[in-house]
Design a protein around this nucleic acid. Structure first.
Lengths: 368, 368
DNA sequence: CGGTAGAGTGTGATCGGTAACATCAAGATC
DNA sequence: GATCTTGATGTTACCGATCACACTCTACCG
């Protein structure tokens, strides 16, 4: 009493053709066309050695003719490997996170993985756990968290055993989660030392949010460099990663004539500082030198072009994928977690100069 | 002769417990613990009405106890619905595309969809087709293309029948692919008219790449507005979306004393133009007015704060998802494709003023 | 009081692949 | 020549869900 009796195996009639048109062809269709069993088709797909060359070609030809695409869901179900990696992203509209996302996706594609993203509205523990849960539902084989706060790496510890994970861009948390990041303290040192070397007595710092390890590490790197040089260490006010925050703190610094050098937590902050200085009539770099952090594409066209500390976000993303794939391949959770640290690089442009020396701009003098 | 005889249905022994620990629990485990059939568990999961309240609670409790998560791959396989949407992204490190990506992901999550991304290194047809292919392998139910060139929307026509798709941020191509975008011509009109209203005799334009419909539409909107006002239409040089491009063209315009108003294809270009004007000693807005396009977060802190045309990228992303979900729900391919057009908005800041009138900056005068 | 409707639940088939095992011919080994 | 290996292929079970359908039991109807 079946209403839709399944067609016999020999059926290649119009009903089958209609199904293929509507839903695409499946392995059985390819097998039938090539005159082999579905298992042989599977062998061809997976580059199994024991297939005669002639058979292989026939199967490949049938696959092309039917525009066959293998079904990831079916494969995932039986192999328990989804070939998918998950990314947890935060503030992915900023240049840094967006670039890391790009780097990760690029590397994942090359490695034959699909990429699923879960952005979180904020970094509280529950949001992160929700994101992890969503990715787990998709049976991802690994998770990259672009979300550099301890809450996140802590939450990563919650991922089911056997699921690979890596945090990128944050700070070393010294726990069991592998991380990939740049040496923020060294970046801060580069910036600060650069300014000291130019002859500045000390360097002020407009920092990012202090609860971000990245901001904290930069503060520490700056502080230690000043200390090592015997320079006084000016106070640091808590700020945000935004141009607004830089502008607000910049106005205060601009009003203080003793300030000759400012190291900013990132390029956005530097943008705000530059405008505050400009509005106060303090010339950069003649009167005040400014250094940023990140080397966003725009920073080269700030007024003046910004000296900054470059971090290669895309490379950061790629490296995090290397670490993740390493975990997936090894499956030896005996090994200690990797902690990759990349070196930042100072990019000297026109926003820094020796104090007091009225170096003129290169291109053209101001008219008034 | 089976080496691993499957445990009987009543088995709740240590072997089962080990499997659950390693691979997670499945529906059968939940069913067993709750003393019901797997089908009843499925009914509870899918909010089927015909389940007794008490049974439902028992099942829910068992699910919680076993930390059960339903397997998306298995579901996808049998329902042919992956609950996953695909995003094709290009230059996703820029603020605009990154924001759209964010908006899409956000809306997708709320709608109960997962999101898989495929970024493309460039916009040639083959790259797009590869990306589509990769997403199809994942059985996505719809594709959003953040890649506003005709090659892309054309390629979208190639997606298998029945697969929803939408292009976001590009231009109306008048073909069968639905699109969501802003009215670029109107944005250009707003900018141009704003400058004309301030009393400028005409407005110069530093455009984006002419093979991008967005750039083209802005050029046309600018041109038509000038024409309607009886103003002369200065020539347009082909450019890129970058600050460098703006800087290079800006230097030429800065050298021409008759130039009093410049409309830029986007905020990056405006940044470059601002610096070129600054270096040439031409004051903004006293001598030259500048308008951007996009309203990136930084533009408010340019020197001076940039008057620009705001487009709500995140909203663009969200709306594109609405269109996509509408397609998925309807399945009436009879209906003509949606073309949603959002209105841009002029954000007047300090980079524009009437020509000749030596309006001083608000905050503080330049010192020299 | 038999018949029907519908709520609540269980059984078996199925999705499209892969893994394990079976088969079978041809050549190698003893 | 019988046995063993090995290459090439087919058969069947299985992954973990959902769907179609069957079944039981109660309520209500004429």
């Amino acid at each position: 009493m079946r209403l839709n009796p399944p067609p016999g195996d020999g059926d290649t009639g119009p009903a089958e053709a209609a199904r293929i048109r509507q839903r695409g062809s499946v392995m059985r269709d390819v097998a039938r066309l090539a005159g082999v069993s579905h298992q042989t088709v599977s062998r061809v797909l997976n580059d199994h050695p024991n297939v005669r060359q002639e058979t292989r070609l026939r199967v490949l030809e049938a696959m092309r003719a039917l525009n066959y695409r293998r079904n990831l869901a079916a494969r995932t179900l039986v192999t328990r490997r989804s070939r998918t990696l998950g990314i947890i992203g935060f503030e992915t509209t900023l240049f840094g996170p967006a670039s890391m996302l790009y780097g990760i996706e690029d590397a994942a594609r090359r490695a034959g993985y699909f990429v699923s993203v879960a952005t979180v509205p904020n970094l509280d523990r529950q949001s992160i756990l929700d994101a992890i849960d969503r990715l787990c539902q998709q049976s991802v084989e690994g998770i990259v968290a672009i979300a550099p706060k301890p809450t996140v790496t802590n939450a990563l510890l919650q991922v089911p055993a056997g699921l690979a994970s890596v945090g990128v861009g944050g700070a070393v948390d010294d726990d069991a989660v592998p991380t990939v990041r740049i040496d923020n303290a060294d970046g801060a040192r580069l910036a600060t030392q650069h300014l000291l070397d130019l002859g500045h007595a000390t360097v002020h710092h407009v920092a990012g949010p202090p609860d971000w390890p990245e901001a904290h590490e930069r503060i520490e790197g700056w502080r230690r460099t000043l200390y090592a040089a015997g320079a006084i260490v000016p106070p640091v006010e808590p700020g945000a990663w935004t141009a607004r925050s830089g502008y607000e703190q910049g106005r205060l610094l601009a009003a203080d004539p003793s300030v000759t050098a400012i190291f900013c937590g990132n390029d956005q902050i530097a943008l705000g500082v530059l405008r505050a200085l400009h509005e106060a009539g303090r010339r950069v770099p003649e009167q005040v030198s400014v250094v940023g952090f990140d080397d966003t594409p725009d920073s080269e066209y700030f007024i003046p072009p910004l000296t900054t500390v470059r971090q290669d976000f895309a490379e950061l993303g790629r490296r995090s994928l290397t670490v993740l794939l390493h975990q997936i391949d090894q499956q030896h959770d005996a090994a200690p977690p990797d902690h990759v640290v990349l070196a930042p690089e100072l990019v000297a442009r026109a926003s820094t100069a020796s104090p007091g020396r009225a170096r003129r701009r290169t291109r053209a003098p101001l008219s008034d």
